[in-house]
Design a protein around this nucleic acid. Sequence first.
DNA 1: AATTCCAATATTTTCGAAAATCTTTATTGC
DNA 2: GCAATAAAGATTTTCGAAAATATTGGAATT
Lengths: 219, 219
Amino acid sequence: MTLAEKAYVSLRKDIVDGCFAPDSPLRLAELSERYRMGFSPLREALNRLQAERLVTAESLRGFRVSARSLAEFEDALHARLLVETEALRLSIAQGDDAWEASIVAALYALRRQTGRESSDVDELKTRHHAFHRALLAACGSDWLMNFFERLYAATERYRIPALLDAGPQKRDIDAEHGDIADAVLARDTTRAERLLRDHYLQTAAMIRSGMVESDAPLI
Amino acid sequence: MTLAEKAYVSLRKDIVDGCFAPDSPLRLAELSERYRMGFSPLREALNRLQAERLVTAESLRGFRVSARSLAEFEDALHARLLVETEALRLSIAQGDDAWEASIVAALYALRRQTGRESSDVDELKTRHHAFHRALLAACGSDWLMNFFERLYAATERYRIPALLDAGPQKRDIDAEHGDIADAVLARDTTRAERLLRDHYLQTAAMIRSGMVESDAPLI
DNA sequence: AATTCCAATATTTTCGAAAATCTTTATTGC
DNA sequence: GCAATAAAGATTTTCGAAAATATTGGAATT
């Protein structure tokens, strides 16, 4: 992996995780210090992230972390429902045995991690992402999958702080995931779409209620 | 505008216009010669275009123009219908007088240009794009508009060669645009969606039938 | 003849410094 | 005191060269 790719991966993770305060400037000198590399690979990574809307840029004034707002979250959520509903429909229509198996595997792995005491948050997030991707993976559309990844990252910036805030959950998220997987494996498109939609709306409600206006960095 | 921004705009235009053969390598030395600038701004632009899927990159082997294929076109078209149908619905539901006026203005400007003998293709493309954007502009969703722009560029790479190939058109495209605008201004969501969908499917049929397998540069 | 190895060349990637621009601070004039 | 101006400092942007890696072509080997 080149330095520019490492910079992209690290920056993306740190922005989604909230290590930088939303709307705060991303100064090259600081990033160069933090990630131990020169300006060139950092600028290349920042340009990619700008295209992905995780970072904003202004001529001769450098880059900033994209601001967070309730409006932007609602917008991303709405777009996500549109994209994922369609991708799920296609996936259910076209998925084969290997696709079904990958869903079972992703769900199993996710549950193993939610069950653990010593919760490695990073690993949990990875598996959560993998499960939701597995559901859509058979849709056969690179564009929809690309939009899914964009929107997942965009909304993850809101979900993580809410998750840490929330403390003990009323929801049984394992059960929600299980129900979605069941409906998908049963090829029940209508029910799968409804459950996925409800799953996101629940998360959204949690985020809305607990949304901190503070843009302080989380980590 | 910084050099990196100029590089982005120029490269994007030249790729969409087909000045570079699809799948051909974008060598820095050549680009540096062509656009009269150093490697740094070019690499930044290429990284942005990579995120937009107009360019592909491979570690230590540089950048290429994204390949074209019928499958990718069909995928982009499908995603476009999904996104634009939803954006149009929202736009019709929320648009105000200024939005209506901007549609009338965009349609007028587009027709002026299609009517001209000395057809400045660039200007025509700009106004065509502006009209289709105007229809959706009141949807209130930055994400959907962002996806619209991405997909517009992606499909434009297929439309332009087909347009040049096609010669005299059987379709009355001015009339199609007029009908869409009428339905939208009448707030007839169902009819507007159907007309927009048909408009794209007609264009798609034209592209499919005439799609040249050759990846030669167009200009 | 085909394969492997090595050198030569081409290309990408990265750095460090220079240039350009923005921001802050100090200074001047009113 | 306050606005306008200029100098100083901070930051981004760009370049040119160096480093790292890939590719090509040819010689040596099987």
